[in-house]
C-alpha cells in the first residue's frame, strides 16, 4: 500500500475518554434471554383489583363514538402494541378497571370505559424453552445464558471499536489515500460482483435497470450489503465513483487499526483486511473490559 500513516493519538487514552460504563451487565443478559426465550409464549392473567394498566397489559374496553370502529360493546386492546388508536393506548396507561376516558379521533369524540384488565404473564425460563430454539450445541438455560452473554459483550465491544475509530481517524496524521490504493481496494470488492452478476455482459441500460431500484435498497442493505453497493450505479466507472469515499475510508481505517494492533493487514491485497482488523481490535477490547 502506498498511502502512509505517520502517527495516531494515544488510543488507550482515547478509549478511556470514551469509557465503557455502559457495558452490558448480568441484568442486560437476563432481559435479553427472557425476551428471546419467551417470544410467542406470553399469556394473560387477571390483574389484581386496583392495579394500574401498564404497557403490555390487555384491556377490554366499551367504546362509544360516531365512528363505527370506536362504537363497540367490547374491544380488546394490548396496551402499547400500536395496533389500536395511539392516543387511547397512551391514555390507558395508569388507568384501572372501571376507569373512563375520552379522546378525539379524526375530529370525532370517542368515549371509552375499561371493563377488564389482564396482565401479561411470561412463562418461567427452562431448559425446554432453550431446546425449542433448536440451536446447535445449546441445550440448557445455562448454555443459552453464556451464549447471550458473549453475544452482547461482542456487540458492545464492536460498537466501542467503531466509536474509538471515529475518535482517532480525524486526529491521525496520514497522507490522503493514494489513487492507486483506492482503485485497488475497489477492484477487490468489484471482482466478485462482476463474476456473480456477469456485469461485463450488461449494457448500460440493463445495468441501470438491474441496480437502480430504490425500493430494493433497504432489502439489500440488510440482507446482501455487497449487492447494495451496486444500487444506483450505472456501469463500472459509475460504481468506482460511488465507492471512492468508502474505499478511502477503508484504507484510513486499516492504517489506524493496523497501527493499534501492530498488524500490517493491507486492504489493497486482502478485501477482508478491515473486517479482520476490526475483529482483532474487538477481541482486544473485550479482554480489556472483561479481563480475558
Amino acid at each position: 500500500m502506498k498511502t502512509k500513516l505517520y502517527s495516531i493519538p494515544d488510543w488507550q487514552a482515547a478509549l478511556r475518554a470514551i469509557g465503557w460504563a455502559d457495558a452490558p451487565t448480568g441484568d442486560d443478559v437476563e432481559k435479553a434471554v427472557s425476551r428471546e426465550l419467551t417470544r410467542g409464549k406470553a399469556s394473560f392473567a387477571e390483574q389484581a383489583p386496583g392495579a394500574p394498566i401498564e404497557k403490555g397489559c390487555r384491556a377490554t374496553l366499551r367504546t362509544e363514538s360516531a365512528l363505527p370502529k370506536f362504537n363497540k360493546e367490547k374491544t380488546v386492546v394490548t396496551v402499547g402494541s400500536g395496533l389500536y388508536d395511539p392516543a387511547i393506548e397512551a391514555q390507558l396507561c395508569g388507568m384501572t378497571a372501571g376507569g373512563r376516558g375520552e379522546a378525539a379521533v379524526k375530529g370525532e369524540k370517542v368515549s371509552f370505559t375499561v371493563t377488564k384488565v389482564e396482565k401479561k404473564v411470561l412463562p418461567p425460563l427452562t431448559d425446554e424453552l432453550v431446546r425449542e430454539l433448536r440451536l446447535e450445541g445449546i441445550a440448557t438455560l445455562a448454555d443459552y445464558r453464556l451464549c447471550m452473554d458473549s453475544k452482547l459483550k461482542e456487540e458492545y465491544a464492536a460498537e466501542l471499536c467503531r466509536r474509538l475509530l471515529e475518535e482517532l481517524l480525524p486526529a491521525a496524521r496520514m497522507d490522503p489515500p493514494e489513487e492507486e490504493d483506492i482503485r485497488r481496494v475497489i477492484d477487490l470488492e468489484y471482482e466478485p460482483l462482476r463474476a456473480r452478476f456477469s456485469l461485463d455482459t450488461l449494457s448500460p441500460e440493463e445495468w441501470k435497470e438491474a441496480f437502480e431500484n430504490a425500493k430494493l435498497r433497504d432489502f439489500y442493505t440488510q440482507i446482501y450489503p455487497d449487492i447494495a453497493r451496486l444500487l444506483g450505479t450505472t456501469g463500472r466507472e459509475s460504481y468506482y465513483e460511488s465507492r471512492r469515499d468508502a474505499a478511502a475510508e477503508t484504507i484510513r481505517a486499516c492504517l489506524v487499526l493496523g497501527r493499534i494492533l501492530g498488524d500490517d493487514a493491507d486492504p489493497t491485497e486482502d478485501p477482508q483486511a478491515e473486517r479482520k482488523l476490526t475483529q482483532a481490535l474487538t477481541g482486544r477490547l473485550l479482554e480489556m473490559i472483561y479481563g480475558g
Binding site: 425476551r35 417470544r39 410467542g40 406470553a42 399469556s43 394473560f44 403490555g56 390487555r58 380488546v76 394490548t78 402499547g80 402494541s81 400500536g82 395496533l83 401479561k120 432489502f219 440488510q222 440482507i223 446482501y224
Partner: peptide, 23 residues
C-alpha cells in the same frame, strides 16, 4: 428466500409486543 428473512424479523418484533397475535 432473502425477503422472507426480512419479514421474519418484522414478525418476530410484532409477536413479541402483541401476545394476542399468533404466528
Amino acid at each position: 428466500c432473502g425477503p422472507c428473512k426480512l419479514i421474519d424479523k418484522i414478525l418476530s418484533e410484532i409477536v413479541l409486543e402483541n401476545p394476542d397475535i399468533n404466528w
